[in-house]
Design a protein around this nucleic acid. Structure first.
Lengths: 239, 239
DNA sequence: TGATACCTCCCCAGAAATGGGGAGGTATAT
DNA sequence: ATATACCTCCCCATTTCTGGGGAGGTATCA
C-alpha cells in the first residue's frame, strides 16, 4: 500500500472478478498488499444472510456465517448503526460480554489492533471491511492515518462486488407502486389508522382499501404489516 | 483533479468543515477542482428531509428541497435503488415524464453529460453526488474512466460530513429492543399474525402482546405497523 | 444484595383490519 | 383507437388487534 498505483491495480483486479472463489482470493491477498496481519470482509445481504471470509482461521470464519453469532460481536454491533470507519480501540469494551468476546477472539489469533469500515447498500445490505494487526498504538494510529482513504475505497469496492453476487432484486423486476399506493403506505408507516389515512388523503376508506390491497399484491405481502416492512426496507417509502 | 494530491487537500478541507455554509462553499469549489461545469450534492436524511446545494442555479436548487419534487427526477429515482455510480446516459429516458424533466433541466442550464454517485447511511440516509458538464460523449467517457475513483471517495466523504449535521439519532440514545422484542417484530414483519408468531416462538399470545407493546413503547410507535416501519428503517430488524 | 430489565402467563370488551365481489370515469402509452 | 393502469365509490361477515390491569420467576449489573 506504499505505492498508490498498487491500489489501482487491486481495484482493477477486483472489478474483473466473477466468482466467489476469486473474490475470496483477492480479499485474502489484501493482507499482503496492505501489509497487515489480517483482513476480513463481512457482508450481510438484504435478507440478513451472512457472507464472510478473510485471512482469519476457518474456525473463526465459521462462526461469522451464523447471523445470530455476528450480532454478538461488539465490532459488528458498534459499526452497524454507524457510518464512520471505527478504530476498535474506540468501541465500547466495558460490558462483560464484550470483554469475553475479545478474549475469545484473541484465542483465535486476532491481533490487538483493528480498524473497520462499514458500507451500506440500497436495501439495507451491510458490509464491514476490517483490518487487524498486532502492534503498538502509536504505530497503528499513524498507519491508519496514512491509509484510511485507500481502505474506504476498498471497502466501497468490496461491497459493490459483493452486491453483484446477490440474487437480483432490482426495481425493474418489481411492479412499481402507484402514487396513491405510496401515499397510503407512507401514512400507514407513520402510524395512521386506515380511517386517518383516508381522511388525510380525502378519500373514502373503501378506496383506501383498494390501494392497500394493490400495494400488498405488488409487494407480494400477505398483510399490511408485511407490506410496510417490505416497502420500508426496500426504500419504496421513506419513513 | 489532474494531481492526486489535490484530492487529498480537498478531503482534508472537507474534514475540517463545521458549518453548513462552509460545506456549501467546499462543494461549489469542487467544480473547479474537478474541472466540470457543475457539481451538486443531494442528501435525504433518515426522516426524508432534503438538503441540496451545488453550482446550479438557485431556482433549480429550490425545487430539490421539496421531497415530492425530488422523486420525479429520473436521475434520483434511477440511483435510489442502485448502488453503482451511474452515467446519466445509461438511465431510462424513455418515459414522457422523464423527457419532460430533462428538457426542463436543460432550460435551467444543466449540461448534457452527467455522472451520479449514490451513497447511503446507516438509517437509510441517501446521498447523491453528481457532476455535470457540456461536452461530447467520448470526452466525457474518458474523463469518467479516469476519475471515477476520486469521485466515489468524494461522495463518501461528502455523505459522512452531511451526516454530522443530522440531529443525533445514535443507537445509544434509543432504548434497545430486547431479544424477544426483536424476534416478535421480525416475525410480524414477514407477515405472520400475532397467533402465528406466538406459535412460532412457542409462547402464549398474551405474552407476545407484552413484547409488541414493549417494542412499540421503545420505538415511540403508536401501533404495530408504525413500530415495524421504524424498526425496519432503522435497521433494528432485518427483513 | 438490591435494582433493573427480561420472560412468561391470564381475562375481557371494544376497535380496527381483512376477504370477496362489483363498477364507472380518466389519463397515458402504443 | 384501444388497451392498460389508475382513482374513486359501496356492503357485509369474520378475524385480528388493541387497551387496561395484575403477577411471579430469572438474569445481570452496580
Amino acid at each position: 500500500m506504499t505505492n498508490r498505483d498498487y491500489l489501482d491495480q487491486i481495484l482493477a483486479e477486483l472489478e474483473a472478478i466473477s466468482t466467489l472463489d476469486e473474490f475470496q482470493r483477492v480479499v485474502r491477498d489484501l493482507s499482503n498488499a496492505i501489509e497487515v496481519d489480517h483482513v476480513d470482509f463481512l457482508w450481510v445481504d438484504a435478507e440478513g444472510k451472512n457472507f464472510y471470509f478473510g485471512t482469519h482461521s476457518e474456525d473463526w470464519a465459521k462462526r461469522y456465517r451464523d447471523p445470530a453469532f455476528v450480532r454478538l460481536d461488539p465490532i459488528v454491533t458498534g459499526c452497524y448503526q454507524r457510518f464512520h470507519p471505527v478504530d476498535w480501540k474506540r468501541l465500547d469494551w466495558s460490558s462483560k460480554s464484550a470483554r469475553t468476546f475479545w478474549s475469545e477472539a484473541h484465542a483465535y489469533g486476532v491481533g490487538n489492533q483493528g480498524y473497520s469500515i462499514p458500507v451500506r447498500g440500497p436495501n439495507g445490505q451491510f458490509a464491514l471491511f476490517s483490518i487487524n494487526h498486532q502492534c503498538e498504538d502509536a504505530v497503528w494510529d499513524s498507519f491508519i492515518a496514512a491509509h484510511s482513504r485507500e481502505l474506504i475505497l476498498l471497502a466501497h469496492f468490496l461491497n459493490r462486488k459483493a452486491l453483484e453476487f446477490e440474487p437480483d432484486r432490482s426495481p425493474d423486476q418489481r411492479l412499481p407502486l402507484s402514487p396513491r399506493e405510496v401515499d397510503t403506505l407512507t401514512l400507514l408507516a407513520v402510524g395512521y389508522s386506515r380511517a386517518q389515512v383516508a381522511e388525510t388523503l380525502s378519500i373514502s376508506e373503501h378506496t383506501l382499501r383498494v390501494y392497500i390491497e394493490g400495494a400488498r399484491f405488488k409487494l407480494g405481502a400477505i398483510n399490511t404489516t408485511h407490506a410496510i416492512a417490505r416497502a420500508t426496507s426496500s426504500g419504496l417509502i421513506i419513513v
